[in-house]
Simulated assay, not measured.
Amino acid sequence: MKIVSRDDIKSAKRYGQVALDLLDTWNVPMSPINYGVAYEIAKGKNKSLLAAYKAHTSKNKLIDCFCLEQWQSQYLQSPAPQNDKLISDLEKVVAGVHEQLESNDGSVDKYLEQLTDGIEQIKQANIGDELLPVVDSLLSASRLIKWQQKELKEQLAQSKNETSQLKDKLEQIEQQIKKDPLTGLLNRRGLDEYLQKVQDTTPLLTVAIDIDRFKSINDQYGHLIGDIVIAKVAEQIRQSSNTNIKAIRYGGEEFLLVMPQSEFNRYPLVAEDIRKKVSEMKLVSKKSQQKLPAITVSAGVARQQKDESFEDLVARADTALYAAKNAGRNQVQYAK
């Protein structure tokens, strides 16, 4: 058992207080996920998390529950168990035993038939009556085996059905954890899966989209209205996506479109179309019937260059996005 020193306790208290101060600064509620991420940032030992935190704050981006949940999933959470392999192995076991019973079923029937014939022959041969109880006992035991085998097959059939249902349920859960619950768009986990399929086969194009002056909307109208604005913007972005164009909620109020460059050749104005549709939205608070100010987005577009990583591609799109903001917002800029 590891002995905890007083220095460890003092450090834990110090990190805990810094974590609480961070939550207060970010104006997010105390929750296991929020506190856990803040605590790790306070410790300063998770380099990947610190890099993401510094990159986020250097651009004065809002830190909210969504952002912290993404960091927790990406930098702190251990890899999820391989559910697909688990179910696959379970199916193999059930199918294997079932197949074995099917193949043995005929031999058991044949054995019972031979045993019954043997008993008749013994009776006809007038062999001593003292032997018949033994043979009858064997016959009863064999019939019991046959009955038990039938019961087991029925149980296995039910297990096979339950395994199939479990597989369907796990597939549903797997799809759910790849999507952002507020917007229905892919989250970073869903993006990672898509990249694994296409990244080495085709050059990509990325559109980085950010809601303009979102912090002021949150401050003035509250997080609930802020979530509604995010969902409405995501709806416009979703309408521009398809099988080959993936829409991702990349941050609190930041989105990505990722597509093969060939797809962008077919829809070259996709970023401009989204910008225009968002600017034309008319939003009204149902509670107060108050009209919300016009919502706009800025966007940056970047084509993947030869031997360029996806992270560098997103960084260039992000640079173009902030060039659009610095130029007055509500516009699209293209990376060089």
Rank of each mutant, 00 (worst) to 15 (best):
residue 296 T to I: 00
residue 15 Y to L: 09
residue 81 P to V: 03
residue 40 E to C: 05
residue 260 P to N: 08
residue 76 L to T: 00
residue 95 A to H: 11
residue 128 G to T: 13
residue 329 R to L: 05
residue 122 I to Q: 10
residue 46 N to D: 07
residue 329 R to H: 06
residue 295 I to P: 01
residue 115 L to M: 13
residue 92 K to H: 13
residue 184 G to V: 04
residue 168 D to K: 14
residue 234 A to L: 05
residue 199 Q to H: 07
residue 71 W to G: 01
residue 62 L to W: 05
residue 44 G to F: 02
residue 110 K to A: 10
residue 292 L to C: 08
residue 105 D to C: 09
residue 125 A to H: 10
residue 199 Q to E: 13
residue 280 E to P: 02
residue 192 D to V: 06
residue 207 V to I: 14
residue 231 A to P: 09
residue 123 K to N: 08
residue 206 T to V: 15
residue 164 S to I: 08
residue 36 G to V: 01
residue 327 A to T: 07
residue 88 S to L: 04
residue 245 I to H: 02
residue 166 L to N: 05
residue 190 G to K: 10
residue 86 L to C: 03
residue 317 A to C: 08
residue 254 E to V: 06
residue 278 V to Q: 07
residue 39 Y to R: 12
residue 120 E to Y: 11
residue 210 D to F: 00
residue 154 E to H: 09
residue 63 I to D: 00
residue 196 Q to C: 11
residue 23 L to E: 04
residue 46 N to V: 10
residue 142 S to K: 10
residue 324 A to T: 15
residue 281 M to S: 04
residue 137 S to K: 15
residue 293 P to Q: 13
residue 124 Q to N: 15
residue 139 L to W: 09
residue 24 D to G: 12
residue 285 S to E: 13
residue 325 K to S: 10
residue 39 Y to Q: 06
residue 250 Y to K: 03
residue 50 L to I: 15
residue 18 V to N: 09
residue 31 S to F: 01
residue 329 R to C: 02
residue 292 L to M: 08
residue 307 D to Q: 08
residue 103 S to M: 15
residue 197 K to R: 13
residue 117 D to M: 12
residue 308 E to A: 07
residue 59 K to A: 09
residue 172 Q to P: 00
residue 334 Y to L: 00
residue 330 N to I: 00
residue 239 Q to S: 13
residue 327 A to M: 05
residue 208 A to F: 14
residue 286 K to V: 09
residue 251 G to I: 06
residue 220 Q to H: 15
residue 136 D to H: 14
residue 76 L to D: 00
residue 323 A to F: 02
residue 102 E to W: 12
residue 294 A to K: 08
residue 304 Q to M: 07
residue 252 G to K: 01
residue 3 I to F: 11
residue 35 Y to K: 02
residue 210 D to R: 11
residue 247 A to S: 06
residue 218 N to F: 08
residue 273 D to I: 02
residue 259 M to I: 04
residue 11 S to K: 14
residue 209 I to M: 02
residue 152 L to K: 14
residue 241 S to R: 15
residue 291 K to C: 11
residue 73 S to G: 09
residue 84 D to I: 07
residue 307 D to K: 12
residue 165 Q to T: 06
residue 305 Q to P: 00
residue 334 Y to S: 03
residue 21 D to M: 12
residue 43 K to H: 11
residue 51 A to T: 15
residue 242 N to K: 05
residue 36 G to A: 04
residue 316 R to K: 06
residue 141 A to H: 08
residue 218 N to M: 07
residue 289 Q to N: 15
residue 193 E to V: 15
residue 52 A to S: 10
residue 25 T to C: 07
residue 229 V to Q: 06
residue 90 L to K: 04
residue 22 L to C: 02
residue 192 D to S: 13
residue 281 M to D: 00
residue 78 S to I: 07
residue 146 K to S: 09
residue 169 K to A: 10
residue 67 C to W: 06
residue 20 L to K: 08
residue 155 Q to R: 14
residue 2 K to S: 05
residue 200 D to L: 04
